[in-house]
Design a protein around this nucleic acid. Sequence first.
DNA 1: ACAATTATTGCAACACTGTTGCAAATATAC
DNA 2: GTATATTTGCAACAGTGTTGCAATAATTGT
Lengths: 135, 135
Amino acid sequence: MDASKILGNHQLRSTAIRRNVIEFILNEGAAVSHQDIEKALPQADRVTLYRTLATFEEKGILHQVLDDESVKKYALCGTDCGGGHHHDDHAHFKCEKCEETVCLDEVSIPAVGLPVGYSRTSANLLIMGTCRACA
Amino acid sequence: MDASKILGNHQLRSTAIRRNVIEFILNEGAAVSHQDIEKALPQADRVTLYRTLATFEEKGILHQVLDDESVKKYALCGTDCGGGHHHDDHAHFKCEKCEETVCLDEVSIPAVGLPVGYSRTSANLLIMGTCRACA
DNA sequence: ACAATTATTGCAACACTGTTGCAAATATAC
DNA sequence: GTATATTTGCAACAGTGTTGCAATAATTGT
Ligand SMILES: [Mn+2]
Ligand SMILES: [Mn+2]
Ligand SMILES: [Zn+2]
Ligand SMILES: [Zn+2]
C-alpha cells in the first residue's frame, strides 16, 4: 500500500508529514501513540501530528485502539472504513513484555448477554498477555 | 458496606477523605474519574485524591475500568481482590447517552481464539451502547 | 490521657498530553 | 504561473498526573 495513494483515496492532500506518518505506521506493524510518531519524526510539529491523527481518524485511515495506559493509540483501518464510519470490530492484543499492541483482525469481538434494557452499538476488547515474539 | 470497615479490612487508616471517597463511589453506582471525585469533594487536595485512588487500587479496593476517552476511571472491586491481586474479570458497559460506565459483574469476558504463540493473562471488554435508563 | 511512631495530607513545582487561534507556507486546480 | 483552499508552525493555554518535602493527623502503647 502506497502512502500517497491512501491520501488520495480519502481526499487528503499529499504532504511530506502525512506520507511519513502513514509510512511509519505501515512499517511499525503495531498500534502507535502520538509520542511514538513524534520520536520517529522529530522534524514535525507536535500540533500538526495531533491534527494529522485526528484527520486520519475522521477520514477512516486510522482507528483508535483502547489501551490500559491512558494514552491514545492508533492503528490502520481496514478498507471498509471511511467518512466518519469505522468498522474495526476486532480484538486487540497487548504484550506485557514488549508492550506492543497489535490488531487481531481475524478475531471478532464475541457477543455477550447484556442485562435487559441494555443495547450494544460497539465494543472494545483488549487482551493482555505475551505475544509470539516474547513467548 | 461501611467505609471505615473497608479501610480497616485493607490495613488503611480511616481518614475523612478516604471515607468520603469510598462513600461517594458507593453512592455513584458507576465508575468514577478523578475529576468526578474532585467535583464531589472540593475540600480535598487533588494530589491527595490521586494518591488515594492509587492506594485503593494497590490494596484491592478499586479496580481501573478501561475507557474510550483517555481518562482513568475506577470502580469498586469484588471481595476477592486485595494485596496487589485483582480478580475483576467482568465486562464493562458505557452508555453513549448518559456517559455512565458500569460494571457488568455477571458478564465474564469470553475466551477467544488467539493466534498461535500468543497467551492471555488478562482482558478488558468495554461494550458501548444505550443503558436501561436511557433506552 | 499523653507521648511516640508512622501514615497521611497539603502545597509548590513540574512534566506531559491535548487544544485553539492565527499567520505563514504549500498543494492542488485552473 | 496564479488563485484558492488546505495544511503547517508557533505561541499560548487548560487539563492530567507525578514528585519532594514539611505539616498534620491516626494509631499504638504507656
Ligand atoms: Mn485494530
Ligand atoms: Mn468493574
Ligand atoms: Zn511481545
Ligand atoms: Zn445511559
